[in-house]
Design a binder for these strands. Sequence first.
DNA 1: TATGAATGAGCCTTCATTCAT
DNA 2: CATGAATGAAGGCTCATTCAT
Lengths: 199, 199, 199, 199
Amino acid sequence: MAYVPAATRREQLIEAAVRVIAREGADGATTRKIADEAKAPLASLHYCFQNKENLLLAVFAQLSDEMPLDADLPDGESTSLGYVMAQSLTRAMQWSVENAVRIRAMIEVTLWAERYDPELAVGFYDGFAKSAEAVLRQVDVPLPDEEIHSVVRVVMSMVDGLSLQFFTDGDKKRTLRDTATACELLKAFLREKEREAVQ
Amino acid sequence: MAYVPAATRREQLIEAAVRVIAREGADGATTRKIADEAKAPLASLHYCFQNKENLLLAVFAQLSDEMPLDADLPDGESTSLGYVMAQSLTRAMQWSVENAVRIRAMIEVTLWAERYDPELAVGFYDGFAKSAEAVLRQVDVPLPDEEIHSVVRVVMSMVDGLSLQFFTDGDKKRTLRDTATACELLKAFLREKEREAVQ
Amino acid sequence: MAYVPAATRREQLIEAAVRVIAREGADGATTRKIADEAKAPLASLHYCFQNKENLLLAVFAQLSDEMPLDADLPDGESTSLGYVMAQSLTRAMQWSVENAVRIRAMIEVTLWAERYDPELAVGFYDGFAKSAEAVLRQVDVPLPDEEIHSVVRVVMSMVDGLSLQFFTDGDKKRTLRDTATACELLKAFLREKEREAVQ
Amino acid sequence: MAYVPAATRREQLIEAAVRVIAREGADGATTRKIADEAKAPLASLHYCFQNKENLLLAVFAQLSDEMPLDADLPDGESTSLGYVMAQSLTRAMQWSVENAVRIRAMIEVTLWAERYDPELAVGFYDGFAKSAEAVLRQVDVPLPDEEIHSVVRVVMSMVDGLSLQFFTDGDKKRTLRDTATACELLKAFLREKEREAVQ
DNA sequence: TATGAATGAGCCTTCATTCAT
DNA sequence: CATGAATGAAGGCTCATTCAT
């Protein structure tokens, strides 16, 4: 087998791991299957990551990085909270349906990570939430802090849940339609809040 | 080890499997760990279920049965769609936070089942959705069929997502608060729809 | 492969381990080589001994038991210390040259045991020494306790050293001749002591 | 890591190997551990010695060279055989207790060498014996050649055996006392022989 | 029938070694 | 020349399963 530099191997192995994990779960993804999928020698996996655990953590980190958390804020203009959140949700789900394998792997690794070290997954969720809040700080929010956090978590749960449903049925159109519905729920809620705030 | 009739053993093993799976995942739940947890001989597992696969399917079926899908409809009275759905969602989440182990196991087994046989999990979701629609047929619905199905799926996704979050942080209060927020979203949406329908 | 009861398997594996260890050392004796030598499935090794370590400890115990430590004391008659010790030494060495493989294995395992747990090997030597002293209590000893202990240890060291030499050259005759010489040293020493004691 | 000339590296690696082998045995002394102990790059080990085998042989040769075989003969004076041999034995054991690590390594490598190539160790013992005989040629010997060779081998065996015991208990004082006892045995034997020769 | 005992297949990891500079 | 990087082969162990009663 041709010698391949470690940096390249790391990427190949992570990508291979993502595919195998999506297919077989984190525990089912044996080092051999991953190495084969990457067309890499088994030993290179341990050369690059020391052990399976580290590889999974790398996969977790990689996928966390890739997840689109932010909305495209039209600069300068004043935008409503509903618009921003809906757009975030929509973008996340669009990414999900286009990256079924990665989302599936993400879920499997997240569950694995929780088992492996409960702190880890919490950290990820927090990062996610922080990122969302950063976005919100840029718009006028008609709600007290505590309430807005709750809404953010509900939106996140909708992303998780809709993604989960998408794996099960694999129906892209339906998932996007349901995403639109979810946005409607969100906007209706915020519109009502704004109306209340005005009074 | 005392001889125990197969029927009893089946229950013990399923219950043990639920606990072990919640702790270690479906793949991490070895036959030995399950047998030990059930204080049953290892061989009895294969005697009762032939193989691990069948046991996991039995766990899946068992947990599917237990999930509370229906709302308590106040008989005779006319109730709004929003009320019914919100109550369903709330009940589901209350059950979730009170049955963390079972929900966790459910998620792990569902992911395993999808890998094992994609049809299976679909069937489960469908059953869930059908059951929900049966409830809805009992109330006035201000939405076309297609739209109402979409809302049902969004609600289901919120249950899944909120449960997922609950495992991660284990914060019961927060989860119930977020559940209430989710209900608000849902109700605001349906109120709006009703207002539109009136016009 | 035919099912074989664990008790039988244990013996087969220990015997096989002795041979492989004699040939390849304790570290070189891989679980696979031992299993093959015993014509046993690899898994049976772990079924019977849990892990390699335990097997080696069992080999150590087994060989310790087999070593002939005692002299054939002619009952009733008064025998000289020199006679008893010389006979012990001779018997030990006769056993050694007839059981080259076992002695070789014993040495390898003893070195391994010292690395694995220093206490172990000490215990073995102590047992050896105790056993020797028990024999000595049966005869008249013309030496103070401390001195007799030292002689015992020197005799033990001759056994070890002569055995070591035997492995290297494999010359049975020479080893037995050297053993006789060693006995002469021992007896000459004790004769001198007795003469001194008489005065 | 700084570039170091091969000659220096060889020494560093041999010294490191001695320490690691004493600690972990010849098989347990992995190339990596040795390289680390020498603070040398792993590849330099193979650059200097081609393979692990050669390094072990080098260690064996090195340690063989170091072993003190000769007695300090008081020039000009006539010295007894007993004195010479006892002094050799004593010096060897003094060196042993002061160089526990090297002796331990020596034993481990010798056993390894015997496994690797039985001729090797024989050669070493022969060299040892030859060297001893050279010393003996300088004094009056009251014994036939064959018998004196046997005594030499017994003395060598006592060195080996006492060293072995010393590793096990690590009791320096006791080892030296036992060495003195061994000398007494030897001297008593030779005195007797001399007396016989006189008659 | 229900169970203790035993095994084939496969897992993660580590080793000595080789490659490429 | 001397070294960092990479790999083929093997090692200890565990798993689901089957056997024998």
